[in-house]
Simulated assay, not measured.
Amino acid sequence: MPSFEIVTHVTAPPERVFDISLDVDVHTASMAGSSEKAVGGVTTGSLKLGDIVTWQARHFGIRWRMTSTISAYDRPGYFVDEQVSGPFERWYHAHCFRPDGHGGTVMSDVVEFAAPLGPLGRVAEMLALRHYMPKLILIRNRHIKQAAEADLATD
Rank of each mutant, 00 (worst) to 15 (best):
P76D: 10
T8Y: 04
E89W: 00
S30Y: 06
H9M: 11
P14I: 04
M1P: 09
V24R: 03
R122E: 07
G45S: 14
G77I: 00
E36A: 15
P13Y: 01
D19Q: 13
P2A: 14
G103I: 07
G40V: 15
H27Y: 09
W91A: 04
Q83G: 04
V53N: 07
R65F: 11
G118W: 11
A94E: 11
P76R: 08
S30N: 07
F60A: 12
H143N: 11
L117N: 06
T44D: 13
A114Q: 15
C96Y: 02
L120N: 02
H95S: 04
I6N: 11
G61D: 05
S30W: 05
V111T: 08
M31N: 08
M126L: 15
G77M: 05
L138C: 12
D155W: 06
P119K: 11
F79W: 12
S71Q: 13
Q146M: 14
D19W: 00
P134H: 02
E125Y: 03
Q83D: 08
F79D: 02
A29M: 08
R16E: 11
I137A: 06
I6R: 07
E149Q: 14
G33C: 09
H143M: 03
H143F: 13
T54K: 09
I137N: 03
D100P: 09
G41H: 02
W64E: 11
F18S: 00
M1R: 10
V106Y: 01
D100E: 07
I70F: 08
H59P: 00
H95Q: 09
I70A: 08
M126C: 06
S68Y: 09
A128S: 11
D155N: 12
Q56L: 07
A115E: 11
H93M: 10
S68H: 10
L120K: 01
H9V: 08
H102P: 00
H102W: 00
E125L: 04
L120Q: 07
R16G: 00
H27T: 10
A124Y: 05
L47G: 05
T69D: 01
V111C: 01
A148K: 09
R122F: 05
L22S: 08
P2H: 06
S21A: 13
Y78P: 00
E15P: 00
G45A: 07
G45N: 14
A72N: 05
L22K: 08
T28F: 02
G40K: 10
T28W: 00
Q56A: 12
